[in-house]
Structure formats: structure tokens, C-alpha cells
Design a protein around this nucleic acid. Structure first.
Lengths: 155, 155
DNA sequence: CACGATTAGATCGGATACGATCTATATTCA
DNA sequence: TGAATATAGATCGTATCCGATCTAATCGTG
């Protein structure tokens, strides 16, 4: 008696999908940031990459990729674009020519000093919940990555 | 005395960005779904679109877009692809030739009946928190969209 | 030292997102 | 009625993401 063909009775509605909540929240963030980032001529991903770079100089592409959960296939074009814009430098590491060291230029740091993001915290409408939501979503991400990556070779 | 140039003292670290938590959680979901969706030959977005279609037949592209927070520029190519795969039908509405009505085919419904998503709930590692996180992220998205869209013409 | 294996980036093709623009159909109202 | 306007999709260009593959540099071992 539990078998039906109606979507609702099986609970298969978009609102029931956590993945959709995250997917659409990400789209919403992109749109919220857009007018602000357009003003400084950066895209969402470019901005995130620069924030990651502001944490440390001379990072390799891989190290940066670990922070951003991206790989060279995605990062290389973005970094080249930011280099052309004069916001960062890319140089082969003399000690290991395979590696590329990436650092923000003074122009890049000046751009970040505008504290672009501050005005966005308000738009989340989360108030005091903000840090809790942030930690929860980060935990969700880490669980997903842990439970997915390195598929069960040992079980 | 509050002005410094160190990233850390200004709290400008990736882990402090809610937008990054959401961005990376979305990437993580995409990767978690990938092996499961690869098996049935769908992409993440195609799957989401089909779930939205399973809620109601004969939806217009715009109506579908409202649910998915996407517009025809993104949806049209995806719907055409799913049509070619035989999972849905697209027909101009005879009453208004501007509109395109989209419905799942029996093959499309059979695909969804496999309840692909069930196995993913577990991978979130959220346990009882699952529904709460889902609602919180959805609220975040709605706040962002409300506070961003239709920029302040009225003040 | 030499040669196979490994590693770090880069390149390429397919699939989203999205702004801007285009086309076809409907609607409005003088 | 018919020209101006509005609306629904579709198309195009740019920027991500990602799997697969390629190249160059390094390492490991005999």
C-alpha cells in the first residue's frame, strides 16, 4: 500500500532536497555578489581565489586548489586571467620547475582592502545565526567529501 | 588602532566566508552525486530539472525556471538535451505559441523511480540535523534573493 | 648515469550559469 | 485595425567546473 506514483507521496519535491537548497543558495550568493564584484571587475570565483591568496604568499597551484577544492584544470585559466589583470604574479619555482608560485601583487591587495564582503553579511538575513550556519554548511561539505572521495577500496 | 594589513587580523580567511562554505558545499554535492548520476547518464543539473518536472506536468519553461532559479538561456539547452535522451517532451502551447510546455515521458519517470537520492542523505553525515540544515540554507537563499533582487528603486 | 614511474601544471572538450540580444507571438490602445 | 509594446524562448559570448589527456620536470632504483 505504500507504493504510489504521485511525487508528493514519495516526498520527491525540490524543497526536500538538501542538495537543491545548497545549489540554489550558491546561485543566490553569486547574484548577491555580482553587482559588488562587477564594480571592481572581478567574478565570484576570481574573488574567492584572491581571498585564498591573501592568506599566504607564494602558494603553489595545488595548495591553492586544496583550499578552494579545485584543480589546475579550473584554476590555471582563472589565475592567468588575474595575472593579466595585474592582481597576481605567477612564477615557476626555481627549486622545482614543475611548481608555479602564485602571489598577490600590491594592486591585488589594494583591491581586497576594500572589504567588499562586509555589506553582504547583512543580506544573508541570518543575524546571530551567521557563524552557526557557516560552520554547519562547512561540516556538511566536509562530510560529503569524506564520505565520497577515495571510494571504498577497503570495503 | 584597528587598521592593519595582515589578513588574519582582519578575519579575511576563507573559513570565515559563508559564501565559500556554500560554494564549496555545492561542489561537494556535485561530486557526491556524480558516480550515482553517471550510472544513469544524467548530470547534476539535469537530475534537478527532472525532479522539478516530476512535481507537475505541462510546466512552462518560465515556471520551471522559477523553481530552479534559472532562466531560458540556461534551461533551454538542458531541456533540449533531455528531450533528445527521451526523458521529456517539449511542445509549443497551442493557446499561446510563445510558451513551451514540458513534461516527463514514461522513460523519464521510470528513471526517477529509482530513487537515486536516498543513498546520498547518509553521506551528508547530518543525521537528525538534516531537515534543519535544509531549511536554514533555503532561508539563507531566500533572504539573499529578496535582499538583492529588485535593487532599491524605492529607497 | 639511465630509464621507468611519479608529480605539477596545462590543455581540451562537454556541461552549466548568465548578461545581452534576437525572434516570434500576444497584447494594448489610439 | 494596426503600430507600439510586452512577453516567452532561443541564441551567443564569456566564465566556470570537471574528466581525460598531455608535457615537462623530478624521483627511484639498478
Amino acid at each position: 500500500m505504500t507504493r504510489t506514483s504521485k511525487a508528493e507521496t514519495k516526498g520527491r519535491k525540490l524543497s526536500n532536497f538538501l542538495c537543491f537548497a545548497v545549489y540554489s543558495a550558491n546561485l543566490a550568493f553569486g547574484r548577491a555578489y555580482k553587482p559588488i564584484l562587477d564594480a571592481v571587475g572581478l567574478t565570484y570565483t576570481q574573488y574567492i581565489a584572491m581571498v585564498a591568496l591573501s592568506e599566504e604568499d607564494e602558494q603553489t597551484v595545488s595548495a591553492l586548489g586544496e583550499k578552494l577544492f579545485l584543480e589546475s584544470n579550473t584554476l590555471t585559466p582563472i589565475l592567468k586571467k588575474l595575472e593579466q589583470s595585474g592582481y597576481l604574479s605567477r612564477t615557476r619555482d626555481p627549486a622545482d620547475e614543475r611548481q608555479v608560485r602564485v602571489s598577490l601583487t600590491p594592486a591585488g591587495r589594494r583591491l581586497l582592502d576594500k572589504d567588499i564582503n562586509v555589506s553582504l553579511v547583512e543580506a544573508t538575513g541570518l543575524g546571530d545565526e551567521f557563524p552557526v550556519v557557516q560552520k554547519t554548511v562547512a561540516r556538511l561539505r566536509d562530510n560529503l567529501l569524506r564520505n565520497t572521495r577515495a571510494d571504498p577500496k577497503k570495503g
